[in-house]
Amino acid sequence: MSFSQSQSGRIAVQMISHIRHALPAVLAVGSLVLIWEAYAHFSGVSPTTLPAPSRVLAQAYEYRQALLDNAIPTLRATLTGFALSLIAAFLLSIIVDFVPRLKRALFPVLIISQTLPLVAIAPLIVLWFGFGLLPKILLVALVTFFPMLVALSKGYEATEPELEQLLASMGAPRWKLFWLARLPSSLPFFFAGLRISITYAVVGAIFAEYAGAAKGLGIYMLNAKNNFRPDLVLAAVLVSAALTLCLFAAAVLAERLAMPWTRRTSTGGPIR
């Protein structure tokens, strides 16, 4: 009884401290939106040029079905492309870790692939692979593959030398060294890369749709712009931002679940 009370009391204290922590950011965003709202109302600017935030929200609600219909293909392209990219990056990172010479051959090529401007590449990929899911997946993979590969490689290299020396002294072969030390050592780097890449992934999918698609937030934004509906463009932006934040939160959650030892539990008890 008293335990559960102290427990809920602690949670309340934690929540208050979280809110305190977030307060400056909330205030900053809130005042920006307010200034925007006031400017849209009192400056006499046309809503087809700069719609007020209230109008964007109202239109987002009005067109919620269309927005949802277009968000789903974007989400599908993002997740499929990102999953493929993760698998490929993981497999290649292992190969490259065992064959350093391959790394020296491949990384320059991959770095060049990162310098290609998305604006130029997206229409070409659509031209080559059509309006279906494939070009979106490819573009998402293109923008996320290299960051993930680099994150994993850096993670392997961050293994403590003493840990490797210890395992070597125990007679562990190279693959055991990788499995027991290098792979777990890379986890913090992997999740740092994951958090960044997941946001790139959404941008990549929207870019691909922008360059040509039947459905999706990207093509929805393009059509809305061509119909002089900046309010709907912004409504779609709102949806894509919400989508990105959800994926980001999922990445953070996955990190917490995969790395329980980084959590400082105040109780100090066993975690599993």
Binding site: E160, E162, L163, Q165, S169, M170, W261
Partner: peptide, 11 residues
Amino acid sequence: FMPQRDALMPW
């Protein structure tokens, strides 16, 4: 072999 520092695996 016991290396310098403890070389315990944090995970």
